[in-house]
Design a protein around this nucleic acid. Sequence first.
DNA 1: CTGAAAGCGCTAACAA
DNA 2: TTGTTAGCGCTTTCAG
Lengths: 361, 361
Amino acid sequence: MAPKPTTDRQRAATLADVGREAGVSAMAASAVLNGAKTSTRIADDTRARILAAAERLQYRPNGAARGLAEQRMHTLGLATLLPGDELNQYFLEVFNGIVEAAARAGQSTTVFALEDWRQGASRLAALCDGRIDGMILLAPLLQLDDAASLPTHTPFVAVHANHALPGVVNIESDEEAGALAMVRQMIALGHRRILHLAGPTGSVGAARRVAGWRRAHAEAGLEPPPQYLVPGEFSIESGRVALEAWLQRHRGEPLPQAIFAVNDAVALGCQQTLAARGLRVPEDLSLVGFDDTLLARTAGLATVRQPLRELGHRAVELLVQRIEARAARRPDPAGPTQVLATEPVLRASLAAPAPTSRTVA
Amino acid sequence: MAPKPTTDRQRAATLADVGREAGVSAMAASAVLNGAKTSTRIADDTRARILAAAERLQYRPNGAARGLAEQRMHTLGLATLLPGDELNQYFLEVFNGIVEAAARAGQSTTVFALEDWRQGASRLAALCDGRIDGMILLAPLLQLDDAASLPTHTPFVAVHANHALPGVVNIESDEEAGALAMVRQMIALGHRRILHLAGPTGSVGAARRVAGWRRAHAEAGLEPPPQYLVPGEFSIESGRVALEAWLQRHRGEPLPQAIFAVNDAVALGCQQTLAARGLRVPEDLSLVGFDDTLLARTAGLATVRQPLRELGHRAVELLVQRIEARAARRPDPAGPTQVLATEPVLRASLAAPAPTSRTVA
DNA sequence: CTGAAAGCGCTAACAA
DNA sequence: TTGTTAGCGCTTTCAG
C-alpha cells in the first residue's frame, strides 16, 4: 500500500480529524495517540481504528497546542550575546554542551541572540513567553536591578554570571584556582617577568584570573610591577593589538619571559604579534592561554582547562530539575552556585625561560 | 468557579486578567496591547486604563497561545547532527550566520540535535509540530525516499544537501570551482605530487573537491596516481590518522610536495602528523585546507574560502520568504539551488616546492 | 467604539 | 470503556 498524500497541504491533520475518520471522539484519539496521563483504557478495536485513521491521515501532534494545554514546551531557552564578527570558541563549546545535554533530556534548545546585556535584561522577560520552559543565561553581564525584572514563573540558570542574581542559579568554574596553579607552575619553571594580558574591567572572570596571577606571585614573595597587568578584551584582535601596543610602549626594557593571557583567543592574538616580530614561542617567550578551547588544542598552546562542555551539561541538568520540580509543585531544588574545577594544561608553548634576558625591540 | 488569585506567581498575568483589572473585556486589552490586525480603535481613556493595568500586572503576552492562534511562532528550526566530541567549525560558522540572520528577521532559532540522518528523516516530520515555522537542514545526508516523508505544511531549506530533494531548496557553494582554482595555483607554483586527503565517499561536497583536484591536474596534462587520493572523514583526528597511515604505507617513496585536504580540520590533523615527524610546513611540504574556518585563519593555513556565514544568512532569508509567502497564501518563491562563490586564500602554509625531492621516512 | 462568541489543537477532570 | 465538558491564552469576525 502506497502512502497516500494528504490532499490538504497547508494544514496537518488534527486529533478531531482522526477522531472523525475513525468514528470516535477527539479525546479517545488523544488517549491512544499521545499516551494520556489518566489511566483511561481504550478497547483494542477502537484503538486499532484510531491508529489506522491516524496513519491514513498522517497525523502529527501539534506541539504548540500541546504546549499550551500542558504548560510545557520541552524547550530550553539560551540567551547569549551574538558572537559578532569573530567566532567565540568559549561560547561554542558551552553551547555544544548545552545542546547535547538538552537533547539527552528530550528538550530542544532555542537560541536567543541578544544585542547587549543592558537591553537584554528587559528583553529576557519578554522571551519567557511560554515558548520555553526555562532559560539559560550564557555569561550574562547583569546588575542586581536587572534580576528584579526577570519573570518569576520561568526558572533561570546562568553559566559564568558576573553577579549572583537572586533566583538565578549560577554555574561557574574555579578560575582563580586555575590561574593560581598555572602561574605557580610558570614561576616554578623560573619565570619572573610574567606579563598578564587581562580581560575587560567589570568581568569577574577576568578579575579572578588576575587574582590568581597575583596570588601566585605573592606566594613566591614576588610582586609584579603595575605595567605587567594589561587590560583588554577577550578577542584575538584585542590580544594582537594590546601586546603590540605594550611592546611599543616598553621598547628597550627587558622582554617579558612569559605571557599569561586571559583566554586562548587573546593568547592567539599575542602569538600573531610575536610571529610578526620574529619572536619565537617558547624559545624567546612562553605563552599561556585560558579555557582550553579547540584553538589551544590545535595550536599547542598551554592553557588552563575549564570544563566548558561540562558547564553546559550541568546548566541543563539543573534547569530541567527546576522545571520538573515546578511542574510537580515540589520545592525548587535550586542549590547554591556550582563551582567546577579547572586545571593547568601544559603544552609546547610553555617552557623554562631562556638563561639570558632579551630586550624589547 | 472563581479564578485563582493573582498572588500565584506560578503563572503570568493573562489578557483576561488585564481586562478584569481595567474593567474591560480581554479583547479590548488584546487590541491595545498586541496591535490588532483589524482597524479596531479604542478610546484613549480605555487604552490608558488597559496600559496601566498591564503595567501593574506585569502583563506579558504568551507566545505559545499566540502562536497557536496565529499559526506562526516566529521561530526557525535548525536540524543538524551533533558535532560530537570534536567541535565542528564548519557547522559553527554556518550556525552563527543562521542565528545572526534570524535575529535580524525577528525570528528565534530552535536547534534540534539529530543522532544520524537515517533516523533523522522520520524525526524531522515530528519536529515540524507547530513550534517552528520552517526548518533549515544543515548538511543533511538524505535520500530521495526521505523527502517523501517530509511534511508539506512546513517549508524546508537545506545548506549543502547531498541530494536535491523535492520541495527543499538547497543553498551551497561552488566547491569544485574552489578546489580547481586552488589546485591550479598549486600546480602553477610548481607542485606535481599533490596528495588529496579526501572526505567520506557519499558526500557530494567531498566528491566535488576531488573533481576540482582532478580537473586542475587534467588541465595541466597531469594525471595523479591513484594512491594520491586518500579517503577519510572530515575531522582533525581523521586527518592525523589517515596521513600517518599513508606515510607508513609509502615509506621510501618520494614525499608529496603538497597536501590538499578536504577541509581545514583534516589539514590541521595532517599538520599534527607532520610536526610529530619533524616535517615542516611549508619548507618540506605545503599544506592546504578547505572552508576557511577560524582554525585556518589562526593557523596561517592556506585554504579555499567558503562563505559559511553567508550560507547561513541566505538560508534564513529564503526560508523566511517562503514562510511569509505561505502565510499570505502567495505562491512559494522557492527558486532553484543557490550556489555561492568560493575562492582560494593563500597563506603561509603554501609555498613553492623545494627544489630537491625528499623521501618518506 | 466595545463585547460576545468561536476557534487554534490538545489535555484533563468528570460523567455516563 | 467512552464521550462530555472545560479550559490553556490569544486572535478575529461579527454584532451591539
